Simulated assay, not measured.
Amino acid sequence: MAAFFTVVLLAVASPLTAFDIGQSTRCVAIPNQMKVCRDVGYSEMRLPNFLGHSNLEGEVVPRSEDWKPLLQTGCHPQAQAFFCSLIAPVCLDTFIQPCRSLCVAVRDSCAPVLACQGFPWPEALDCDRFPAEDDQCISAHIKISHFAKELSFCREDGPALKTVVDAFCHHDFAVTAKVHHRRLPMGEPEFEVDGRVEFIRQGPLLPYDTQHLLQQWLLINLRCANVLVRPGRSQLFVLTGFVHLDGVLALTHIFPWHKRDANIAVAIRKWKHHRC
């Protein structure tokens, strides 16, 4: 998984300042193989994009796939909107960049996911590069339909149904678990799996050992756990991952399960009859 995030960081190595809004641009259809941005709500994108890519097949399509592992974590419901607004900007009469507020919202949720893998938020996505919120940028609150054609771009829902079901299919196990974050008298954080671990896909896990293995993961990945759950809180998660030969868990998808995330509940119901 770390290798995937390394690729993501390389994908944004070129500074956003490489793009000059004054240069000549063209509109092209978003190709079917560009799966990351295929369902963003519009069919044409502008080239060069805001990452300075001008070659559709040689740069844009392969670079868009580099973002897939991060987006699949469900780190923020508008992460796809943010990244696609850069790599596949909507083709309108004017240039529409993401607002600084959208960048900050996505960064604050997705940067911890990168930090869990030991990587910083890419400098090329420094939120100060983007315009302050006004009527000419995509904000965390204004959908792109504000600009043209009622395009449903910035979605308020949680991870997509397909994203969750695919995570169940492609990993050894999937469970639901509540993680509690408490602080010890000396100020050190402590995390524990609160209550029973419920299996969605059991795989090689053993019921009597799973809670201990998850507790072990929290201990090893203390920095990661620290940004997932606020002190004094419990948070319900859907967790998927692999089991190493030595029995240690490797979590690859960590979906916070909030009451508003209907897609997770639907995915769990569908899974009982789903064939991968």
Rank of each mutant, 00 (worst) to 15 (best):
M1P: 01
F4E: 15
T6C: 10
T6R: 09
V7W: 03
L9S: 05
L9Q: 08
S14L: 11
S24H: 09
S24V: 05
T25G: 01
R26H: 14
R26T: 10
C27F: 02
V28Q: 06
P31Q: 05
Q33R: 12
K35T: 15
Y42G: 08
S43D: 12
S43P: 03
M45T: 13
L47I: 12
F50I: 10
L51P: 06
H53Q: 15
S54L: 14
S54P: 01
S54E: 08
G58E: 10
R63V: 14
R63S: 15
R63F: 13
S64V: 01
D66M: 08
K68L: 08
K68Y: 01
P77N: 12
Q80N: 13
A81D: 05
S85G: 04
L86P: 01
D93F: 06
T94H: 12
Q97Y: 11
R100K: 14
L102T: 04
C103I: 01
R107S: 14
D108R: 04
A111G: 11
P112L: 01
V113A: 09
C116P: 02
G118R: 11
A124V: 11
L125G: 10
D126K: 14
R129P: 00
F130A: 07
A132S: 13
A140S: 11
S145H: 02
F147Y: 11
F147W: 09
A148R: 14
K149R: 15
L151I: 13
F153Q: 10
R155H: 14
D157V: 13
G158P: 07
V164P: 04
V165I: 15
A167P: 13
H170Q: 15
H171C: 14
F173P: 01
F173I: 03
V175P: 13
V179D: 00
V179Q: 00
H180K: 05
H180Y: 06
R183V: 15
R183H: 09
G195T: 03
G195H: 01
R196F: 08
I200K: 00
G203N: 03
P204E: 08
D209W: 02
Q211E: 06
Q216K: 12
L218S: 07
L219S: 10
I220H: 12
N226F: 02
V229H: 05
V229M: 02
R233K: 08
L236K: 06
L239W: 07
L239F: 09
L239C: 08
V243F: 03
V248G: 13
A250S: 09
L251Q: 01
H253P: 04
H258G: 12
R260W: 14
D261L: 02
A262T: 15
R269K: 06
K270I: 08
W271K: 05
K272M: 14
